[in-house]
């Protein structure tokens, strides 16, 4: 992780980052396919049936890592946003932009699988549980960022306004999470604890970790691929882009 960050600092110019990202995309794609493949196999065939929740619980192997990722990605976006605002580097805006759709997808996936899990567990698709609600608000924050980015034509303004919004969001996340939890405990009636008694076995933990790593690899691969096309789009007028083999063809 650390080594990669240092690399990104060094390769902060789009012209040098573009080919590097091009080399990394296939590696991380392969990693993602293998890890998610192994993870899915383990979650369906290796992990034991839960004595309390039956087979339906297996969806948490997607649900939990997706929820983790949706939060991590927002933090990483905030990191890039801060970097972009302070050092005025073009690449950070592009990275923030490239990560956002993936984060939104993970937030949506977490909510969707949560609903699928909730139906057999709690007998209802949606519960105003503190975590579900926070996740929903996180999805709104992602959508707000994407909407703001999409409606500004000037890329520099779009990047900087988006970065500011992400930073404001990240400051607010703890407050939102805390207030939602407070609200949730106040309305005891609807509260259903997420971890109702199932002790996590070692196999389950490993499965979840592998899935999470797979999602990481997927995120990196997709974000890099997306950042490559953003670079091409924005730097279309420059000479280095017109000299690229794939552009000349």
């Amino acid at each position: 992780m650390n080594a990669r960050l240092i690399n990104w600092f060094k390769f902060s110019s789009p012209a040098t980052f573009y080919p590097l990202a091009g080399k990394m995309v296939p590696i991380f794609t392969l990693l993602a396919v293998v890890l998610i493949g192994v993870g899915l196999y383990m979650s369906f065939f290796v992990a034991p049936t839960d004595y309390k929740q039956g087979e339906g619980y297996r969806i948490i192997f997607v649900h939990v890592p997706a929820a983790w990722m949706s939060m991590f990605i927002y933090l990483i976006m905030a990191f890039w946003a801060g970097l972009g605002l302070v050092f005025n580097t073009r690449l950070s805006g592009m990275m923030t932009r490239a990560l956002a759709p993936t984060g939104a997808i993970f937030a949506f996936l977490a909510l969707w699988t949560g609903a699928f899990w909730g139906k057999p567990m709690w007998g209802t698709w949606w519960v105003w549980d503190a975590r579900l609600t926070s996740e929903l608000i996180l999805l709104f924050l992602y959508l707000g960022y994407l909407a703001l980015q999409g409606s500004i034509d000037d890329t520099r303004r779009a990047d900087r306004a988006g970065a500011l919004l992400v930073l404001v969001g990240v400051v607010n996340i703890p407050i939102i999470y805390y207030s939602v939890q407070w609200w949730n405990t106040l309305h005891q009636g609807a509260t259903i604890s997420m971890d109702n008694g199932s002790k996590m076995g070692v196999t389950m933990l490993w499965t979840m970790l592998i899935m999470a790593l797979g999602f990481w690899a997927y995120t990196i691969a997709v974000a890099l691929a997306r950042v490559r096309s953003i670079i091409l789009e924005r730097e279309a007028d420059t000479t280095w882009v017109s000299e690229l083999a794939e552009v000349r063809r």
Partner: peptide, 23 residues
């Protein structure tokens, strides 16, 4: 657009505001 950006940030105020009256 403003509502999309701002409403999620309004949530804590909503929760504590209506919570105060309710309590």
């Amino acid at each position: 657009l403003v509502s999309l950006l701002v409403l999620p940030l309004y949530i804590p105020v909503l929760i504590f505001g209506s919570g105060a009256v309710e309590a």
